[in-house]
Design a protein around this nucleic acid. Structure first.
Lengths: 213, 213
DNA sequence: CTGGATCCCTCACGATACTG
DNA sequence: CAGTATCGTGAGGGATCCAG
């Protein structure tokens, strides 16, 4: 073996060995949303070379962070899912995502938003204490990515896809970041047209309180 | 420019751009202990090539994570220190270090312990709630690295170097990890000789309660 | 002595093609 | 669909050199 190593007996150095390589944390991010097949991971990470994805999955499996599971017949395909140990990265991934979001700036022309990244972004910006009195469902569209959120007295459930009868549908572009960062009030966002809403429009204010970078 | 990028408009992807490269988080770890000169960083990261260190410092400075500061005369040398934004990585670095420490295993023959890594390891394993009733000072020696700790009713201060009149001096090798992980009781550790103590030996039990992976 | 810059070599990464 | 094989490129590793 004798791979590259930091040469330090240190928890952080070991963590960097396990999940510090390029692409690895983004793979973990997508798996935090749910178990996925190889092709699903590719779809969520369009720029990752397949050999790198393959290699990372092996490393993560060897490190006990994820496990391969063969789905029951007649499907028989393979999914990758986080182990308990891997799942404990959740708080760290959310915190790092929040930290990074604060200096994100505008997206480049090549930058995309994936369903999983949006799901995790909403989970990372959710402020439980601001949602205690709220019960509502939202559908959020950023570009052509759609997720739905259900808030129930301090508990959040987010998933990809539409929501049949959401209380409020929010449609936005990258400006969604300015709204979450409170650089833009909900009123300004709607007025400027960078955010469009359909449904119980009063719920947009609550949305902007509950989710905050 | 046009450097490698993930192509995603996502806080985590951006964080990975800022601090996700090899060595970067270890540099941040050492700077979390205090401002440092180029040569101090080299000493704490013996395996880092100087060009990589130089390059990382530039990137981190450009990203607003650290800043260069020229010390007042007559010294006139340069130190690198975290910005406020960089300092907010502390909780993340501590959590990641804790996560990694759980699967660290035994150190290889090449693995070293540095003063800064030990300081951060102690900070990351400190459990405030277990230290509320305690007031004590320790000197901890792991290999030839020495740090001292002062616990004052739920507050911890750690720094490199010896402590003149510590209540308890703890001397250990890599077995310190087993003690912190509670794979070894303090009594067993002393009995087997893997941990040696000098001073108020009853304080070793408190130590093992207060610091826990 | 500090604070790097430069060189060269290697290997991991990235792009693409291909296979069971 | 789920990867492996191949191959070019650039980042990392290591040694050395240089300016203040």
């Amino acid at each position: 073996m004798a791979k590259r190593q930091y040469g330090q007996f240190c928890g952080l150095a070991h963590a960097a060995d396990l999940v510090g390589e390029r692409w690895t944390l983004l793979i973990v991010r997508d798996l935090l949303v749910g178990a996925k097949r190889f092709t699903d991971l590719r779809r969520g990470l369009p720029r990752i070379p397949t050999n790198v994805l393959s290699s990372r999955l092996k490393q993560l499996e060897g490190a006990g962070v994820i496990q391969r599971r063969v789905l029951p017949r007649p499907d028989g395909s393979v999914v990758y899912e986080l182990t308990d140990y891997g799942n404990e990265l959740e708080a760290i991934v959310l915190a790092l995502g929040r930290w990074g979001a604060r200096t994100m700036g505008e997206p480049g022309p090549e930058d995309i938003v994936t369903p999983d990244s949006l799901v995790m972004a909403m989970r990372s910006t959710f402020r439980r204490e601001a949602a205690l009195g709220l019960q509502a469902s939202y559908e959020l569209r950023v570009g052509d990515v759609v997720v739905h959120l259900r808030i129930d007295h301090g508990e959040l459930k987010v998933a990809a896809g539409a929501q049949a009868d959401a209380d409020l549908v929010i449609e936005a572009g990258p400006a969604i970041r300015s709204l979450l960062a409170a650089e833009l009030t909900p009123a300004e966002a709607v007025e400027s047209g960078s955010v469009r809403v359909t449904g119980d429009t009063a719920l947009l204010d609550r949305f902007a309180e509950v989710f905050r970078i």
